[in-house]
Simulated assay, not measured.
Amino acid sequence: MTKNSKDADVAFIQALAAILDENDMTEIQVKRIYANNDSMNVRVSRRVEMVGAAPVAMAAPPPVAAALSEAPATPIEDPAALPGAVTSPMVGTAYLQPEPNSPAFVSVGAQVSEGDTILIIEAMKTMNHIPAPQSGTVKRILVADGDAVEFGAPLMIIE
């Protein structure tokens, strides 16, 4: 590999990182194909912490001593681990109502049947209706209308 091609690859990766930041994305993966059956796979991602199911980019982790001194006395509840947790099957934008200014699909305390649409996740301009995986009562809604969600992020609790 020549110095020029290495510099071009570095510039390409830096451009991907800039796109990641500018578009508030968490990950980009690209395969770049060169001549002579040569290629380069690039995956650029940033660490994200789910706070109320909204992604928040984090800075570098604090030193271990500082992290231990700031640790909460009680463990933090992970909503995804609760029985009845409905998690996101994809990355996208969650919508709690079928269209603006219309009633929400469900609300806390509502009874749902298995298969009822509980929200929509928009991914790549496609509206994906998310069905209730079980019948029960909506105990908690963990996302707000228009929130960005990641794969596996808890959306609501149905018990």
Rank of each mutant, 00 (worst) to 15 (best):
K3V: 11
G115E: 08
L96G: 00
P83T: 08
I158L: 10
L20A: 08
E77T: 14
I121N: 02
V64F: 14
A57R: 15
G52L: 06
V112P: 04
A81P: 06
S5I: 09
T93L: 09
S113V: 07
Q134V: 05
A123K: 06
P55I: 00
R43N: 07
V56D: 10
I13C: 05
V42A: 04
A104D: 12
T74P: 00
A11N: 11
S107E: 13
P79F: 00
D21P: 01
M25Y: 07
T2D: 10
E70N: 14
T126H: 11
S113F: 01
D145A: 01
A8E: 12
P75L: 08
E27P: 04
A148F: 04
E22K: 15
E99H: 09
I76R: 14
A53N: 15
G92V: 03
A60S: 13
I13R: 00
K139Y: 05
P131N: 10
M25C: 08
E27H: 05
E122W: 03
A60E: 14
G146C: 08
N23A: 09
A94G: 05
P62S: 09
A144F: 02
S107A: 14
S135N: 12
A18P: 04
N23T: 10
A35E: 15
L96W: 00
G152S: 06
T26K: 08
G84T: 01
I157H: 03
A148M: 11
P131M: 06
A18N: 15
P133E: 03
E150I: 08
V143L: 07
N128V: 01
G52A: 13
A57M: 13
A132C: 11
I130Y: 01
V51D: 12
E150L: 11
P79K: 01
V30D: 06
P63G: 04
K31P: 00
L142H: 09
